[in-house]
Design a protein around this nucleic acid. Structure first.
Lengths: 217, 217
DNA sequence: ACCTGGACTGAACAATCGTTTAGCATGCTG
DNA sequence: CAGCATGCTAAACGATTGTTCAGTCCAGGT
């Protein structure tokens, strides 16, 4: 059989379809994307999409699961590094969003897809948020045990609040980039964003700004 | 002509169609809602929808504008009250989201529509976010002038951050309600949420929790 | 009383949707 | 070599989409 795929691409045709669907779903939403668009983007016939995934909804469910798997793998890698990175507000990674964005190429459709998933009112979205919430609670516990943060009067709410603040950066990324002129999840954006966030978390809105390197006290 | 509308409803048929479209768009997204569904919900024929609004997209644009107008009116009312409510973190309204939710009935489709609008990558969404950002900057200026908050090292970013945190409550409302067991925008939810938020803004993550009424110091 | 114009319907339009089917080519297995 | 499963396409299916059209109804102006 002649290989339909261009040389240097070792993905199966099935994987190509899934990846193109992922990209299109992330960009326009699953409901706005047609089977024919996916097939065309993958360079195959519409019938083959259904042949491989049963139906458009079957494809959507498989893409959901795929994204969840990739995300879980990244999460495991992150917490597996000793977890120190997530526990220390002074470390390089100051937020889940940043750590996540930093582990992905700039043009990855995954952030967009995750954004949709988180707000989509589906089982996959609920599961994802629940996992993130559990991680947020564990992180807050870790910070509290290390004396780096108080658990607050209502730790459940505090963990949810920290998670929501973190995800806001993720969900509103495009809008924030518009008004700030910088993508807050890029390397440049983070050097602006992180200090402000850490300053508030360290001492609230009235705290004196942390001195830049070499500043006077 | 016999009045098509049920007694006690003084809206024009055109307004009924717009309202039903608003409700359905907010619930399922404009792309997932058909003209026939809107017409059926409004108790009219599909042709009449097009007759009044030119096209489905014309209807969507008009609903966008309508929501923007309603929102702007509420915003004007809010800042018109002297603005004190928004400037004082200790006052009743501790966030834009809360003030907004409190001015609407519980079953209002407006929050859902605004959520979609903010993330929709349309002109209306961009305009809305820009207005909110301007308000956030003005509020931060006011707080700084009153000595209630420092403008931070990068006031633009700080205002964006405060806005994003505020909107996160709005965007993730359903997800937060799931994990917390309480709608964070309800009256009950706010009594849990606001103190945590204010505590962080007042003194950071390490601050001692503000004493509840009658507590020992 | 006549006319005009707008609200409104029911039926139909072409286009596009997700999906099905028949069939071709290929590679593996007995 | 025959047989069969698999990857895949081209064409067509019925359903549904947004939209159009012809025509009915009724209020208001002259």
């Amino acid at each position: 059989m002649l290989d339909m795929r261009s040389i240097g691409d070792d993905r199966t045709t099935r994987a190509v379809i899934r990846d193109e669907a992922l990209r299109l779903f992330a960009a326009h939403g699953p409901e706005a994307v047609t089977v024919r668009q996916i097939a065309s983007a993958a360079g195959v016939s519409p019938g083959l999409v259904v042949h491989h995934f049963g139906s458009k909804d079957g494809l959507r469910r498989e893409v959901d699961q795929y994204v969840l798997d990739v995300f879980e793998a990244m999460l495991g890698e992150l917490t597996g590094e000793g977890g120190a990175e997530l526990f220390d507000p002074g470390a390089g990674a100051s937020s889940l969003s940043e750590a996540f964005a930093r582990h992905l190429p700039d043009d990855s459709p995954l952030p967009g897809y995750l954004r949709r998933l988180l707000l989509s009112d589906t089982g996959a979205g609920r599961l994802l948020f629940r996992q993130l919430y559990d991680l947020s609670r564990a992180t807050l516990d870790g910070l509290a045990a290390a004396g780096l943060a108080a658990p607050g009067r209502d730790p459940e709410v505090r963990a949810a609040l920290l998670l929501a603040n973190d995800l806001a950066l993720f969900l509103l990324r495009d809008r924030l980039a518009e008004v700030l002129g910088t993508d807050p999840l890029s390397a440049d954006g983070m050097t602006r964003w992180a200090p402000e966030m850490l300053s508030i978390y360290a001492g609230g809105l009235n705290a004196a700004p942390p001195r830049p390197q070499g500043d006077n006290p």
